[in-house]
Computed example of a mutant assay.
Amino acid sequence: MSDSHPPYGEQQPDPNVTPWSGPPAPPQQGGYPPYGQPPPPPHYGTPLPPAPNTSNKGLIIGLVAGAVVVILAICGAGIGILLAYDDDEPARGTSSTPTLGTGSTPGTGTAPTPGQADPPNDNNNSMTARYSSDLSNVCEGSPILNAAPYSGPAGAKAYTFSNNPDRPTYWSSKYVPSDKSYYAKGSDYQKVSVVGCLRFDEGSQGAPKKCQYKDKDEKQVTVDYVSSRYTLTLYAARTAEKIGDGGTVTAPTNRCPSFISYDKTTMRAYAAPDSGTIEAALDKFLS
């Protein structure tokens, strides 16, 4: 048995085709070629589709339209505010001058009536206290603007001061018992409505009492301890107007004090006003 071959030059039969099969199927579009057949050559040089053109025209138009809307809104709000302001503006009319009544002239020295408002103050020496010691200026005629108004003895708080015979315009605070209804602490000076002023009576000095002390150098010194009298006058703290008399208060020298302040030039010291007499006078006026 011999193999038969086609003559030279004739087409060789396709080994993938059997006598009972049809012609080979063409390659599928986009897929792989049938088994045993080479893939189709790539299509080089095919131009890509052009990219879509983008434009900023729409964005610009949108921004311009938004800006116009904002400007119109601001203008509308401003007009609304102006209209509202005009509506709220009260109507202006003519005012008439009130009729002034006749009142008491301030500074005449008339004591204020209890419960009555203080008269207007036009005293150039008036002042605002910052410390309790500032109320001593009432004794020199200065109203204390932030003191409590005087509305009568009941419930009134009081301070007392006395001047110095050697320095008449110097005023020092005098003791007030803390168990009294008219007592006020140093920090409560704005609650004080009454100031008692103990003024030295000129020519009331008594015979000096000789008191022996040692100075700072432990040297023995003799001090003339002088008795005298004072006059107690009560004033409204807020107006510096006189509201009462406390009478005479003595400054006795029955015994030499354990501590004394004296003038080194004259070697003289004055006795302080008697605390018991001051207390009795305040009790009588304020209780």
Score class of each variant (00 low, 15 high):
1 M>T: 00
4 S>W: 06
5 H>A: 11
7 P>Y: 02
11 Q>C: 09
15 P>C: 07
15 P>K: 04
22 G>I: 03
23 P>L: 00
23 P>V: 00
28 Q>A: 03
32 Y>T: 04
37 Q>G: 04
38 P>M: 05
40 P>I: 00
41 P>G: 09
46 T>M: 13
48 L>I: 07
54 T>V: 10
56 N>V: 12
56 N>Q: 10
58 G>P: 15
59 L>W: 04
59 L>Y: 05
68 V>K: 02
70 V>P: 11
71 I>V: 15
72 L>N: 11
75 C>R: 04
79 I>V: 15
80 G>I: 14
84 A>P: 03
89 E>Y: 02
90 P>V: 09
92 R>W: 02
101 G>E: 15
105 T>W: 10
110 T>A: 15
112 P>N: 10
118 D>F: 06
123 N>K: 07
123 N>V: 00
124 N>K: 06
124 N>Y: 03
126 S>C: 03
126 S>Q: 04
127 M>N: 08
132 S>D: 14
135 L>S: 06
135 L>R: 09
146 N>Y: 04
146 N>K: 09
147 A>F: 05
150 Y>P: 02
154 A>S: 13
157 K>V: 13
159 Y>V: 07
160 T>Y: 00
165 P>R: 03
175 Y>K: 09
178 S>F: 02
178 S>D: 10
181 S>R: 01
186 G>C: 04
187 S>M: 04
188 D>S: 15
191 K>N: 15
192 V>E: 12
194 V>W: 01
205 Q>D: 12
205 Q>S: 12
213 Y>P: 08
214 K>T: 09
216 K>F: 01
219 K>C: 05
220 Q>P: 15
220 Q>L: 05
223 V>C: 14
227 S>M: 01
228 S>N: 08
229 R>H: 13
232 L>K: 04
235 Y>P: 15
239 T>Y: 08
243 I>N: 12
244 G>Y: 02
244 G>P: 15
250 T>P: 07
255 R>A: 13
257 P>Y: 02
258 S>C: 01
260 I>L: 05
264 K>A: 09
264 K>C: 03
268 R>P: 04
271 A>T: 14
271 A>Y: 02
272 A>C: 08
272 A>T: 14
274 D>G: 01
274 D>W: 00
276 G>W: 02
276 G>H: 05
278 I>M: 01
279 E>V: 09
282 L>V: 12
283 D>M: 05
